[in-house]
């Protein structure tokens, strides 16, 4: 019983984090990582590389939201700079030539945030302006 209550409360807290600042979140995104080194700051090119399967000089692993998600659309538009169609084509090329794998996808911002909190190095994008739990670091925001 106690565990269920704790889980329920944890979900409520996450829900609060995700949606409390939804009004600001509509038009921009930030990149958040579970990293011990809170001084890490990436530039746009490095973020783009990280989410396109490239190698950057930090122990970070990208995770993503599904194609129809609004935050993902903003991330594609403002950071990756490619249409969703081209991104899907790119991952097909990478997979069937044995080069890279697309980041793991989570159903929504809540489940992505849960994963970030539990996994050191996990890096994802969230609506800008959202309250971020202390354990996580914002490593990139759109200027």
């Amino acid at each position: 019983m106690g565990i269920l209550v704790k889980k329920y409360l944890a979900c409520l807290v996450l829900w609060y984090f995700v949606f409390s600042t939804a009004a600001h979140a509509a038009q921009s995104v930030m990149v958040v990582a579970n990293t011990g080194d809170q001084s890490i700051q990436l530039n746009r090119q490095q973020v783009r590389s990280l989410f396109m399967g490239g190698v950057i000089p930090y122990q970070l692993k990208a995770v993503a939201l599904p194609p129809e998600n609004h935050t993902r659309v903003l991330f594609n538009t403002k950071i990756i700079g490619l249409t969703e169609s081209r991104i899907q084509s790119y991952w097909a090329q990478m997979r069937f030539t044995g080069r890279k794998r697309a980041p793991r996808e989570f159903e929504n911002e809540t489940s992505l945030l849960q994963f970030l909190l539990r996994n050191v190095g996990a890096t994802g994008y969230l609506p800008a302006g959202m309250d971020v739990p202390e354990q996580l670091t914002v490593i990139y925001t759109i200027p």
Partner: peptide, 24 residues
Amino acid sequence: RLKLGRQRTPVFSYSDFSDVGFAY
């Protein structure tokens, strides 16, 4: 990354995935 075995030769830009029409 090292790959050992039978592979498509990456001669031109699209050579190694020319069969994956979805990718272009």
